[in-house]
Amino acid sequence: MKLASVIGTVLGVGYIRPAPGTWGSLVALPWAWALHVIGGFPLLVLAIVVGFFKGWWATATMTQDQDNHDPSEIVVDELIGQWIAILPLSYAAWSMEISILAMWPGWIAAFALFRLFDITKLGPVGWADRMDTPLGVMLDDVIAGVLAALGVLALAALYHGVL
C-alpha cells in the first residue's frame, strides 16, 4: 500500500490543500519539461504510457474495499492528463529542435484547458468519470488531456494563421 500511495499521491502532492488536483497538474509541468529535456518527445510519451499503468495500479490499490472510487489525494491521473496536454508542445519543440520553453503561451493554454476539462467533466470526460472504477479515474484525465491537447493545437493554428 505504501508504494501505491507514493505513486497515487505523486510523492504526497495529493495531500496539499486546497485543490489537490490543481497542485497535481502544476507539479506535472516541471516534470514534463525535465522529461522533454532529457529525452524529447519519445521519453514524454513513454513516461505517459508507463505512468498510466502505474497510476491505474496505484488507484486500484488505494481504493480497494472503499466506497470512494476517486479520493481527492489521488492526483497521478492529473499528472498523466497534464502531460498529454503538453504533448503538442513537446512534439513541436523536439521535431523543430527549439526550446520547449519558447512556447510558453502553449504551456499556459495546456494547463488552463486541462483544468477546464478536468473540472467541468464535459462530454466524454464525464462518461469516464462515471465509470466509478480505477480505470475511469485514469481515463477521465486522459480524455481531458487529449481535449486540452487538441485545444492547444487549435490555438496554435489560430495564432500562426493556419486557421
Rank of each mutant, 00 (worst) to 15 (best):
A148T: 05
A112V: 15
D65C: 06
I84Y: 01
A32G: 12
L46D: 00
D118N: 06
K121Q: 11
V162N: 14
L35C: 07
P30T: 02
V162W: 15
S95G: 08
R130W: 14
H69D: 13
Q66A: 03
P88T: 06
V50H: 09
A149I: 01
D140N: 08
Y159Q: 10
Y159A: 13
A128L: 09
A109G: 09
V76N: 05
V125M: 12
L87T: 08
I16H: 06
L35P: 00
G14R: 00
G161E: 10
L35A: 11
G40W: 04
S25W: 00
W94H: 15
L3E: 11
K54L: 15
A110S: 09
V162E: 14
I80G: 03
I84N: 03
I48R: 01
I143W: 02
A58R: 04
D67F: 01
W94N: 14
G14C: 03
D70K: 01
V50L: 14
N68A: 10
A109P: 02
P124G: 12
S99I: 07
L147T: 10
H160E: 13
G24L: 11
S25L: 03
F52C: 02
Q66P: 00
T61F: 07
A19Y: 00
A85L: 04
V152E: 02
G126E: 13
L153S: 06
M131Q: 15
L29C: 11
M103P: 05
V10F: 14
I86W: 07
E73D: 14
L43G: 01
T120I: 15
L46M: 12
T120G: 09
W23N: 09
L122R: 13
W94V: 05
M62Q: 02
I84D: 01
K121P: 08
V27G: 02
Y15H: 13
W127C: 04
L44N: 00
W31L: 15
M131I: 09
A149M: 03
G21V: 09
V146P: 03
I16S: 05
L79V: 13
L155G: 10
T61A: 12
D132E: 15
L43Q: 01
R130Y: 13
M103Y: 14
L29F: 10
A148D: 07
A112P: 09
V137E: 08
S25D: 04
W83M: 05
M103C: 09
K2G: 06
V49A: 08
A148E: 04
P105T: 10
A148H: 07
A109S: 10
T9D: 00
A32K: 01
I84H: 01
W83H: 08
W31A: 14
G151N: 11
V10H: 04
P71C: 11
A60C: 07
H160T: 15
A47H: 05
G24H: 08
V142T: 05
I100L: 11
W107Q: 04
D129Y: 07
W83R: 05
P20A: 08
I74D: 03
E78M: 11
A112G: 13
N68I: 04
G136A: 10
A34G: 12
